[in-house]
């Protein structure tokens, strides 16, 4: 379970990315975070695995206050969280399986790390992860020979090989064409259902978010403005998230400024 309690995030330049965020996410949920670019989606996601430090409040992941973690324990903590990126972030010059095997690196003895020799067991796990996303036949192909959708699946397999409880996905389908995007979203749904992994996903494509996620969180200028079931999201809710004119005094101009910051 993930719990945000009055979480604040202020960047060194004084820009406030998250303002008083309160949030609870249960194990096994499929959450989509939507909002304009610059609204704080990415920051919210990266606070969960400490890629960003929060500057106020507390953030509990499985009852642990992650702000108390240091050095090695941060890395240990991250082992249980998978992360997927918009640009796939793979080593394109090596084979698919080698990219997946990277997720075992932190647990290996020193000499194996140095020589890059993986155990039979690890190779099997990596292949199983590839099979789960349907690209087992590409295991020994170099990544730069795969399509964008296939590359994102390699990244997904790398995350699955970690066997995490939680997957954070930062705009996973933004650089894919519509058909491939649907396929990758299907993969996420299957993994969420079959393995009961929590999926928290930033996505700017609203239709996809509503189609696949159970729960939608709308964020605007660092504040949560909607939190509810995907089926309850109405036109009015979307206007509130994306235009920010409905309540309060903040105008479009304010949001734009926040974006440019």
């Amino acid at each position: 379970m993930i719990a945000f309690k009055q979480v604040q995030k202020q960047y060194p330049n004084g820009y406030s990315a998250l303002k008083n965020v309160n949030l609870q996410i249960q194990q096994g949920e499929y959450v989509a975070i939507i909002g304009r670019s610059g609204a704080g989606k990415s920051t919210l996601l990266r606070c969960i695995n400490r890629m960003h430090e929060i500057t106020g409040g507390t953030l509990l992941v499985d009852e642990v206050d992650i702000n108390t973690l240091k050095g090695k324990s941060v890395r240990q903590f991250r082992r249980n969280i998978g992360m997927i990126f918009q640009s796939f972030n793979l080593v394109t010059r090596v084979s698919v399986i080698k990219n997946v095997l990277v997720s075992f690196v932190p647990e290996m003895p020193f000499w194996r790390k140095l020589l890059g020799i993986f155990t039979e067991q690890q190779k099997k796990q990596a292949l199983m992860a590839l099979d789960r996303v349907g690209i087992l036949d590409k295991a020994y192909v170099r990544v730069d020979q795969l399509s964008g959708g296939q590359q994102q699946r390699v990244a997904l397999a790398r995350t699955l090989a970690q066997n995490p409880k939680l997957i954070l996905a930062d705009e996973p389908v933004a650089s894919l064409d519509p058909v491939t995007a649907h396929q990758v979203m299907d993969d996420f749904r299957r993994i969420n259902k079959e393995l009961n992994m929590t999926v928290i996903m930033n996505i700017h494509h609203v239709e996809l978010a509503l189609e696949y996620a159970n729960r939608v969180i709308g964020i605007r200028a660092g504040e949560i403005v909607y939190d509810g079931a995907a089926k309850d999201v109405t036109e009015a809710v979307l206007r509130q998230i994306y235009n920010g004119q409905v309540e309060e005094g903040s105008s479009v101009v304010d949001v734009r400024q926040a974006v440019t910051n």
């Binding site: 084979s95 039979e120 190779k123 099997k124 292949l127 199983m128 099979d131 087992l136 020994y140």
Partner: peptide, 14 residues
Amino acid sequence: KIILPNGKEVTEKP
């Protein structure tokens, strides 16, 4: 040849 727990076979590239 690597045999996966689910019975699939993969030929490991040397």
